[in-house]
């Protein structure tokens, strides 16, 4: 799933959280960058923690997709499966490109 590919994904977010959303989305772009570095270095620990935190926070903000991808990342990092991590980075990037947030 490549960035910008596919239909828009409308995400309904709790208006209480509106102020936090830009920071949260930016945080995931930062995660993508860090994940890429981690994969290059073979740093599975960082990849696991990033995945774990995405898994824990995504759905709370309304982004269930991020929780799912985070969970998969955590598992792939535990398994030391770099290819899967690379695939999931792409999936996350695509997800971020497709979402449209409504409050």
């Amino acid at each position: 799933m490549a960035e910008g590919n596919g239909e828009k994904l409308v995400i309904k977010v709790d208006p209480d959280l509106a102020g936090l959303i830009p920071g949260f989305i930016q945080g995931r772009h930062d995660d993508i960058r860090e994940l890429k570095i981690a994969v290059e270095k073979g740093d599975m620990d960082t990849a696991r923690i990033l995945g774990h935190n995405m898994k824990g926070s995504g759905g709370g903000y309304g982004f269930n997709g991020i929780t799912e991808i985070g969970g998969a990342l955590e598992k792939a990092a535990k398994d030391g499966n770099k290819e899967e991590i690379v695939r999931l980075i792409g999936e996350l990037s695509g997800y971020l490109g497709r979402i449209e947030i409504v409050y």
């Binding site: 959280l17 936090l20 949260f24 923690i49 935190n53 824990g56 926070s57 709370g60």
Partner: peptide
């Protein structure tokens, strides 16, 4: 919580 996103989320929900 070590996750900034989780801390902010919890903090915001509780403050609201």
């Amino acid at each position: 919580d070590d996750s900034k996103d989780s801390r902010e989320l919890l903090g915001r929900l509780l403050k609201n």
